[in-house]
Each structure stands twice: as C-alpha cells, then as structure tokens.
Write a protein that binds this DNA or RNA. Structure first.
Lengths: 254, 254
DNA sequence: TGCTGGCCAACTGTCAACAGGCCGCACTCT
DNA sequence: AGAGTGCGGCCTGTTGACAGTTGGCCAGCA
C-alpha cells in the first residue's frame, strides 16, 4: 500500500548532477587538473547545461572545482602545502569534536559508537579495504555527531570528501591493519572514561599519523616538484575528453 | 602607460551577482527568512536569471541561503543553537590559528599585526563603529594569515560573513569600548612573546565573550521562542517583494 | 627550420522562452 | 459560517539558441 504512493517529489536535476560529479571526483574518475566540459556531462546525463553549471558552482564553492573565466571548470589539484593545511584543519576540527563529545555524548551515543568500532574490527579482519575506509570515516563522523554541533558535522563532511579524493588519487591504502583499530579503540575508551585530554591526544595522534602517511605517498608520487614552485593553477588544463565515458549514470542521493 | 592597457577581463556576471546578494545579506537589506525572487533580482541588476541562479547556488553552499524545491531561495535564518554552534566552531578555528601563528609568524608579520591593533585603538577613541568592526575582523583575519594555513583563512572568511550577518541582523554593537583593545592587546603581547598557551587562552576568552554578548542580544530579541521547537525551515516564507528595491547596483568585487 | 599570422572548431557565458508547480482567492456546497 | 474545490497568476526548473572567446592548426614567410 505505502509503495503505491511513493513520494513523487523528484530531486532537482542540479542535486543529481552534483552528486554524479561528486562521485566521479571522489572515486577518481575525474582526475585533478582535468577539464570538465559542460556539454559533455550534460549530454551523458541526458539533461541540458544549465543544471550542470549550477552543480559545478556548488562544487566550486566547496573547493572541489576551480573555474577559469571563459575556460570552464577544472578538477582541483592539490599542492603539497594544501594537503598539509587540510590535515591541520582536520586535526583542529576533530580534536574539538572529540572534546565536545566527551562532555556531551549520551550513553546511547557511546554504545552506537562502540557498534561502529566493532564493525571496523570485523572489516579489518576480513581485509575488506573499501568498506573499511568507509567504516573508519563513519566512526569519525559519529564523533562529530556526538559533539552535538551541526556546523562541525557539515564541515567534517566537506573535509571528508576532500580527504577521500586525495586518498583515492594517491592510491593510499589504510596503513598497517593493526593500527586503526588500536587507535580508535583508545579513542573509544577515552570517551567512555570521559577523559577529555586523552581523547584529544589520541585524536591528534591519529590524524598526524594519517597525515604523515598521505604526505609520504604524495612525495613518492611527486619527487621532482620539491624545489620548484609548480604554480600553474590547473596543472596543464588537459584539453580533452573525460577519461571514462561510461559509468556516470544519474541517481545520486537515493 | 600601464593604465592604457587595463585588463579588460570583465568579471563574470555570476561573480557580480554573488557579491551583490552577499552585500545585501551582510548589511541586512535581505532579512533572514526572506524569499529571493530570481526574476526580481535579475531585473534589478539588468541581467537574466541564469547568472542569478548560479550565484544563489554559491551562497547556498556557503550556508547563507537555503533552497526549497519549487519555492526558490530564502535567506537563511539562524536558530539559537546554530549561532552557538557557529561560535563554537569559530573558537576552535581561531584558537588553532593563533597557536599556529605563535610558532610561524615572522617578525614582519607581527609588526603589521601591531599596525592593525593601533588602528583599532584609534578608531575606538574616535568612536567610529562600522570601521571599528571592520578593523577588528581584519585583526583576527591577520592572525589566520599569520598561521600560514590557507584553508584556515578561507574558513575564517566564511565564518566572518555569517558572523557579520548575525551581528547586523541582531543590531549588536561592539560592546564596552575598552574591552576589545584590551583583549587584542593581550593577544598581541602573547604572540610577540611567543606564548602559545596564553595566546590560545586570550583568544578563547575573547570569542566566548563575543558569543555571550550575541546570545544575550538574541534572547532579548526572541524571548518567547525559548520553550517551543520553532522549527519551520524558513520562518514564514514571506511571499512578497524585497524590502529595499533601490540601492542594489552592480559592481561588487572592486 | 623556426616563427608569424590568420582561420576554424569547440566551448563558455548569457539570454529568452516554455512547461509546470505553488499560492492565494473566490466560489460553492453542506 | 466553515470547509472543500476550482481557477488564475506568479514564479521556478529546465531547455535550446546565440554570440563571443579561446586555443589549436596550418599555411606562408624569413
């Protein structure tokens, strides 16, 4: 009965286009520096260019795309410094979140966090990399949720997208399998013990560790760019078609 | 000679429209909850609706507008909780910024910060409220700049816009004239002494003080909404014309 | 061979128009 | 009188088209 009357409030084309582009960026289908041709995307999605442009504007404001006048949109390419800055911001955000969570989280909230932690453990043991990353992100997001600060959650989500873009582009796998469990286990303990200082310390350590790992991957990947400025906003605009013409169907946000 | 060849790269209409709407929001011409009629704005600016829509999308992503399907864009109205969350975030950001600035700021950077501080003092003595607010914001922004973290600066700018919107809507004036100088003076001293803990403490105190002041204004303004949920996304869509049909010329970003 | 200048295709920025939903209002029926 | 219903205007969401610009390509020339 309730199926017959499914909500017909169709999601706007802008939202759908945004989610499609977003997904293409996070999974690394659209590579940094790559040019996005409006007409191409619109054609592939079967819509007109208007909604695609609006979606691109949204992502521009988020910092995932940059726009050059009369040239169009490009996937943002991270410089080394920008990755460092991002992780520094992430540390400050998540440390604040866990501090707030210590004093505000309910018992039920902590239990559900424990649930997520168990999921991380089981996924680690079964060696399922992609879901594991997802679960770790979910764990950290939960801490933001427990902080009770909606603005913090929104910011975390933005940062998480950029981080996962970086991870996927650099091909970073979650490091030694033992560590994340351990760290997140300590975090959980500190939260349960309502130990603000320890929780903050663990969180900071974790993020610095993650940062170091990512930066090492980055340097391994860009060994020569150490000395020179390397400051062409989109590094070689790469006029050309998108990489993978298939595999970009409609229907995010479901 | 160099004047004869001024850059003729005209700023895109989207950018100009965005800045116009932004200004209208920050100075309180567009009030929270107010509906923005695309055609109206486009007509007043002498352009078509397309760029206006894209500009609105930008501001939506920043959280300054909310969009309801088939209803259009509304100026975002802050709930009490959202203001608290915003200030909590601001504290975490600026404390992190001043900490980083302590260890990274150059002597020249500190001197220019001192310059800004003197400007605050002189404006306070002359009692020029609007420029004073501007100068205080500039002072705090400088600290973010001294932190050397570009991402932090971007986030500060976003937050600053929201804060100034709140201040202007609530009609908050900068409190007792003595305080800000005093606080920012201590901040400056701590930075010059490279005293990270003291700088962080002063910053946190300042922002908590500002928050308390704003919240008091808010509660004075919305005394009845304490108990009830008050959760209609845009509080009464207020179908109707914008408040001040004049005074919204083109040409932000100059 | 290397450089200059013009030509061309592609793509962006912008606009005007169309279809359809939402809101307010008047009208009708109970 | 009050509630429900149908109508009409206003406004959004989307589209297709047009003009202008950008960058690449190629011929011509030193």
């Amino acid at each position: 009965m309730q199926d017959t009357f499914k909500a017909l409030a169709t999601v706007s084309l802008v939202t759908q286009a945004r989610d499609c582009i977003l997904r293409a960026i996070t999974i690394g289908e659209f590579l940094p520096g790559q040019r996005l041709v409006e007409g191409e995307i619109a054609g592939r999605l079967g819509i007109s260019r208007g909604p695609v442009r609006e979606a691109a504007r949204l992502l521009e404001q988020r910092g995932l795309l940059v726009s050059l006048p009369r040239r169009g949109f490009f996937v943002r390419a991270f410089e080394e410094k920008e990755i460092e800055d991002l992780y520094e911001l992430r540390e400050c955000i998540e440390v604040a979140a866990v501090r707030a969570a210590v004093s505000r989280a309910s018992e039920a909230g902590l239990r559900s966090l424990g649930e997520r932690h168990r999921k991380i453990i089981s996924l680690t043991q079964r060696g399922r990399e992609p879901e594991l990353i997802e679960a770790i992100v979910a764990f950290h997001r939960s801490i933001c949720v427990l902080s009770g600060n909606g603005r913090l959650i929104r910011l975390f989500d933005e940062i998480a997208i950029e981080v996962s873009q970086i991870l996927s582009v650099l091909g970073v796998a979650v490091g030694d399998p033992g560590r994340p469990i351990e760290v997140q286990g300590s975090l959980l303990e500190a939260l349960e013990a309502r130990d603000s200082r320890r929780a903050a310390r663990e969180m900071a350590h974790f993020i610095r560790h993650a940062k170091a790992e990512v930066m090492e991957h980055y340097r391994r990947r860009h060994p020569l760019e150490d000395g020179r400025p390397t400051q062409s906003p989109p590094p070689r605009p790469a006029r050309g078609q998108v990489r993978n013409p298939a595999n970009m169907k409609m229907g995010g946000q479901q």
